[in-house]
C-alpha cells in the first residue's frame, strides 16, 4: 500500500470526489446549488487532469486541464446561472421518482459500472486506471439524472455532467484523446450548451414553463 505514489492517491481522491458530486447532484432539489455542484465537479475534474499532466509530463493534458477549468468550471456554470436568473426558475426542481429510490438505483448503477470497468482497467497501465470505473459510474449517474428530472435545466446539467464523466474516462484510461479530438469535443459541448440556452427561451415562450412534462404530446397512437 505504501508504495503507491502520492499522485495516484490524489487522482483517486479526486475521482472519488467526482463520484460524490455525481451523487450530490442526483440528490439536489434546487437549481442553483445543482449548478454549483456541477461547477465543483468540473473544477475537481480539471484538478485531477492537472495532476495527471504533472505526473506524466504530457503537454496536451495541461491544455485540456485548462480547457476543462475554463469551460466546465467557469463558463458553462456562469451561462447557466445567467439563464436561471433571466428565466427566474430558481426554485423549481422536481424529481419524477423520489430521491431515496433514485439513490438506490444509483448505487446499483455504480456496482454495475465498476464490474464492467474492472477487466478493462486491469489491462491499463496508466496511473489513473482505477478511476475508469468511477468515470463510467459518473456517466451512468448523469444519465439517471436526465431520466428522473422533469425540468429542462437539470436535464441539461445532467447532459453536461455526462460529458464530465466521459472526459474523466478519457484521461483515466488513456491520458486523454488526441488534441484535435478534444478541441472538437469541447467546441461541440459549448455550441450545444448555447443552442440549449436559445432553446430554453423558445420553450418558455411557448409553454410559460420549463417543465418538460409539457413536452409529452407527441406520442404514437
Amino acid at each position: 500500500m505504501s508504495s503507491v505514489p502520492l499522485s495516484a492517491q490524489l487522482i483517486n481522491l479526486f475521482a472519488s470526489v467526482i463520484l460524490l458530486m455525481a451523487f450530490a447532484m442526483l440528490a439536489q432539489r434546487r437549481v442553483l446549488p445543482l449548478i454549483n455542484l456541477f461547477a465543483i465537479q468540473g473544477a475537481v475534474l480539471a484538478a485531477s487532469t492537472g495532476v495527471v499532466a504533472v505526473t506524466t509530463h504530457q503537454a496536451h493534458l495541461y491544455w485540456s486541464a485548462g480547457l476543462t477549468l475554463a469551460l466546465k468550471a467557469l463558463l458553462l456554470p456562469w451561462i447557466l446561472h445567467r439563464l436561471v436568473r433571466r428565466l427566474n426558475v430558481k426554485w423549481d426542481v422536481e424529481s419524477l421518482i423520489n430521491i431515496p429510490t433514485t439513490m438506490i438505483v444509483g448505487i446499483v448503477l455504480v456496482v454495475v459500472a465498476f464490474n464492467v470497468a474492472l477487466p478493462i482497467s486491469q489491462l491499463s497501465s496508466t496511473i489513473s486506471r482505477g478511476t475508469l470505473g468511477i468515470a463510467l459510474a459518473s456517466v451512468m449517474l448523469a444519465f439517471l439524472m436526465m431520466i428522473t428530472r422533469s425540468k429542462a435545466i437539470p436535464q441539461v446539467v445532467g447532459f453536461l455532467a455526462m460529458e464530465n464523466g466521459l472526459f474523466l474516462a478519457a484521461t483515466s484510461a488513456t491520458y486523454g484523446m488526441p488534441m484535435v479530438v478534444e478541441l472538437g469535443i469541447a467546441l461541440d459541448v459549448l455550441v450545444g450548451a448555447i443552442i440549449l440556452g436559445v432553446f430554453f427561451f423558445q420553450i418558455r415562450e411557448q409553454f410559460d414553463s420549463l417543465d418538460i412534462r409539457h413536452l409529452e404530446r407527441l406520442k404514437d397512437s
Partner: peptide
C-alpha cells in the same frame, strides 16, 4: 448509508489493486 456503501465500493475498486 449511501456514502458508506460508496466508501466500500471505492475501497474495492480503487485501493485493492494499486
Amino acid at each position: 448509508f449511501l456514502l458508506a456503501v460508496l466508501g466500500l465500493l471505492v475501497r474495492l475498486l480503487l485501493e485493492t489493486r494499486v
